[in-house]
Amino acid sequence: MSRFSLSDRAFDRLNLLFVLSITLIIIYPLIFVISASISDPHAVNSGEMWLWPVDITLDGFNRVFQNDAIWIGYRNTIVYTTVGVLIHLFILLPAAYALSRKELMAKKVFLWFILFTMLFNGGLIPTYLVVKYLGMVNTMWAIVIPGVIGAWSVLVARTFFQQTIPDQLVEASKIDGASDFYLFMRVVLPLSMPIIAVMALFHAVALWNQYFNALIYLSDEKLFPLQLILRQILILNEVSADSAATAAGAAQSFSDQIKTASLVKYAVIIVSALPLLIVYPFLQRFFVKGVLIGSVKE
């Protein structure tokens, strides 16, 4: 071997060790949460459970499934995410496509009109007042409409269209008498499934995980998305009393309540993250792709 192989091998070992330790540090809290969600809460709270589950129990999940607030939140989140993603694509894709076409006049003006919002925005208060004027407060629309598209996604989708839809294809179809509308629906969209997947995924994750718009725009608990319910349970420590009562009868001791709270905590984290955890390994490459298209500088 070459005369550098010794130091090279030492480098490789150290590097491997470094990456391995970082990776383990990052996944440890996740493993802990998974283990804690199916362990006896006494073992979790006393520190006896620190890696693998101890005294396995599914009680936490039972309590979560019996909790009405969590179910309502779950349903609301699914509705907001679905509706939000559909509107997102409906506004984003045609606009990004139009901006990718060289026949569009004043393209620079439109682009700047959109890009400028990245640089400067009205801020929290004026935006809140606009949403309020529009009568969206305490409706689903306050969650779904503000932020439905951003300048970044327009740019990313536009870059994709520019790179994948050849001009000749557009021109040929136009000579054949196809309208822009027909062209977009029948030719462009079928060729654009990767970008549609990427944009839908990014927006779905953002909607699934956001709590702030719900916090400021919603006061009706029936409309609360999952994240607001999670906030009550995990951070404000309010496990809704009614569900605890139905679960264990009226004569519930204080220590039992604490036990329930800590059981529910970890189980509810798992339940809330479940859809993402399931799809993530399969869709990881789409997410990565989205970041990379977005990083192409013009």
Partner: peptide, 10 residues
């Protein structure tokens, strides 16, 4: 991909 609420909850 974990929400801020869950991170702070953890």
């Amino acid at each position: 991909f974990i929400s801020v609420v869950v991170v702070v909850g953890m």
